[in-house]
Design a protein around this nucleic acid. Structure first.
Lengths: 143, 143
DNA sequence: CTCTAGATGATAATGATTCTCATGAACAAA
DNA sequence: TTTGTTCATGAGAATCATTATCATCTAGAG
């Protein structure tokens, strides 16, 4: 942590990111699910699908994926949920019943935010917007 | 919850809400602070100000106040923070450095949301928007 | 095949929040 | 003012998601 850290050979090594059975399984599973899931739910599914993976590994993998932008994190009542996502800035409209979510671009908000920044003299503004509703499928179950 | 709820004697008893020393102290303190504070922070302040109050009571009181709309709850990294607020629907622009927050009305967003609902066939949409930035005071500390 | 850094699993630790339950105190009524 | 009912409080334990520890394993380079 001092300025005399060992001189790394050419700074060449971005922490290697090994492809393991567990990471592959988690990533594959998320690729098929369009809803937000908790680490527990992901773990439960993989176990019942015969994939032997520990809960800490699920958390560690999700943390990695979140860091690299592969998943979004949504926090609700003190619990985090995860969902694969695109990498551009966007929001989610999540169904409160089934968890199905659609991604929403945020163009109209950006202008509004820029104006607020000027008005209140805040700089470097970031925003988190989460939308939830009832999707058509859950609103009309018998259709 | 059904249409045959018990006929309350004149519907006269809204759970009584006693005014206690502890609740008064918490409420008074929040009235003076324009930033989001954790239950811990509130508890610490009150204790060091000589108010004898337990942490569970702080949590209980904040829960009551949140239910009645007297405070807003902001969740960050699994921790909740609380701040007195006005009762109309609004958002916050919070300083990432000092926590100072300003309330923002949300008019422009409502229309956008209504349009999204129609487009994706989601009904009954609610939204949470949190904005954070750097306030002018923290951006220019020596001024 | 060997080597080694990074990955994993079992387990314990952490930390915010909530619950339990015996005791204390508002406040309405006498 | 005194009493009685009921809600509020405090101390401590319980919960529960998440993270840390550490010995063991393994992907992938050479």
């Amino acid at each position: 942590m001092t300025s005399t850290d060992l001189a790394q050979p050419a700074q060449s090594a971005p922490p290697s990111e090994r492809r393991t059975r567990q990471r592959q399984a988690i990533s594959d599973y998320l690729a098929t699910i369009p809803a937000f899931l908790t680490a527990q739910q992901i773990h439960d599914h993989l176990r019942s699908a015969g994939v032997d993976v520990s809960l800490p590994t699920v958390y560690r993998t999700l943390a990695h994926m979140a860091e690299s932008g592969e998943v979004d994190i949504l926090t609700h009542e003190g619990q985090s949920s995860y969902r694969r996502c695109s990498t551009t800035h966007h929001h989610h409209l999540t169904c409160r019943v089934c968890g199905r979510a659609v991604e929403i671009a945020d163009a109209p908000i950006d202008e509004w935010i820029a104006a607020l920044g000027r008005e209140h003299e805040y700089t470097d503004i970031t925003h988190v917007t989460e939308l939830s509703g009832i999707c058509s499928r859950c609103a009309n179950p018998q259709e």
